[in-house]
């Protein structure tokens, strides 16, 4: 074999070898297992802590309130729709209760009048005509707002 060809060939082999070595070193562990991505990233996405625990967790202490809410119009409204978990609600709900003030503003998120809200949807109010200065739960039962407080 001529010397020139040998040199060219060996340089090529060395280049490819170095490339493969560097690639092996830089490539993350599970890259390419399912496709052109790091397969372990799927597990990473599962590791985020839960904030919303679901109604099952609430029921363990508050079965009575759940039954009241579930008995009528608010049956589809989950506990956590209104009681936003502030800091891991179920762990700290005794020390840091997720209280809701029940203001016009708050209930108005669903019940304020808006042309985009369907007429057959939740009852809609123009709060200017309906006790503007008062909180909703001053009169309405908070977990069964279709009832008025006695």
């Amino acid at each position: 074999m001529p010397k020139v060809i040998f040199r060219l060939f060996s340089t090529f082999v060395v280049f490819v070898g170095v490339f493969i070595l560097i690639q092996q070193y830089l490539k993350p562990d599970s890259f390419g297992k399912y496709g052109h991505y790091r397969a372990n990233a799927i597990n990473d996405a599962k590791l985020i802590p839960l904030q919303y625990k679901g109604e099952k967790e609430c029921i363990t202490c508050h079965q009575d309130i759940y039954d009241l809410k579930y008995s009528d119009l608010h049956d589809a409204v989950s506990c956590e729709s209104c009681h936003i978990p502030k800091i891991l609600a179920t762990d700290a709900c005794k020390t840091n209760p997720p209280k809701v003030e029940g203001s016009n503003e708050f209930c108005g998120q669903c019940h304020a009048i808006n042309a985009g809200r369907l007429k057959k949807g939740p009852p809609q109010l123009d709060f200017k005509d309906h006790y503007e200065k008062q909180n909703c739960i001053d009169c309405h039962n908070s977990h069964a707002p279709w009832e008025l407080k006695k």
């Binding site: 985020i48 904030q51 729709s81 936003i84 998120q109 808006n114 985009g116 949807g121 939740p122």
Partner: peptide
């Protein structure tokens, strides 16, 4: 009904 609960919950959860 455009209450925005979903957008709020998403921000808290994630």
């Amino acid at each position: 009904i455009g209450c925005g609960k979903c957008a709020e919950a998403c921000k808290v959860e994630n």
